[in-house]
């Protein structure tokens, strides 16, 4: 029984989820890309293309220079950073996940030791909880937050939690927990294209445009 569920979530269901994910993400990305841009005849003051690439690469390090914002929103900064570091690290570099990516991309992927993935998992899970609580309490975030955010946070948290349980504390329930982890992960993969979690793909567009504008205006920041 547990094995049947396991085979389902790592077989047909995962396949389906991946199809939905890639299709949905590509759809959302290109739906925006092909809307078109009006031409810009103003002579740029800097190099917009260089800045666009540069900003995409270094944008996550830029916000930290805003001391006064950091002092008010350290939770967002530190929590957000830890969460993204943990989530991205776990998604790509845990051996089991890396092998999946290796199959999908056909490229060799590096893997990371358990000790690092454990630290990342605790960091990501902890910061996610803190961020969610913060979201529920901060007046600005209360205004901005919809159901989507809470659901996404909950889903990611439970995926992280079951993954952590499965690798560390499963005992004899290993296959059950692993199946549950994979089932929830499949749901998360399907959910990404339908939600704001797909912001990762718009990051490239949005930050790219921001860098492009910075290059056009000749500012460094």
């Amino acid at each position: 029984m547990d094995v049947a569920l396991y085979d389902f979530v790592r077989g047909p269901f995962l396949r389906f989820a991946l199809f939905v994910f890639f299709l949905g993400i590509a759809y959302r990305f290109f739906r925006v890309v092909f809307l078109g841009l009006p031409p810009d005849y103003a002579r740029p003051k800097g190099n917009p293309y260089y800045m666009a690439v540069k900003k995409i690469l270094i944008k996550p390090t830029m916000g930290w220079t805003f001391n006064e914002i950091f002092s008010r929103r350290a939770v967002n900064y530190v929590g957000g950073f830890l969460f993204h570091l943990g989530f991205i690290g776990l998604t790509f570099l845990v051996p089991a996940h890396a092998l999946l990516w290796q199959e999908i991309t056909g490229l060799p992927m590096p893997t990371m030791p358990n000790i690092i993935s454990d630290i990342l998992a605790y960091a990501a899970l902890g910061s996610l909880v803190v961020l969610t609580v913060h979201r529920a309490l901060n007046p600005v975030l209360k205004l901005l937050t919809g159901k989507d955010e809470y659901f996404a946070n909950f889903l990611i948290a439970i995926v992280l939690f079951t993954g952590l349980l499965a690798t560390r504390w499963a005992g004899s329930g290993y296959v059950w927990l692993l199946s549950l982890h994979m089932l929830l992960a499949d749901l998360l993969i399907i959910y990404i294209p339908f939600s704001r979690l797909s912001h990762f793909i718009y990051y490239f567009l949005s930050v790219g445009f921001m860098g492009w504008n910075a290059g056009k205006r000749g500012v460094s920041f």
Binding site: L35, R72, S198
Partner: peptide, 26 residues
Amino acid sequence: SINTEVAAYLEACVRCGICAEACLFY
């Protein structure tokens, strides 16, 4: 008024609310 740039901005918002702290009125 929607074009690629505007749509990208509208889609990209992650509702983190950090912009509030940057706004001089807020």
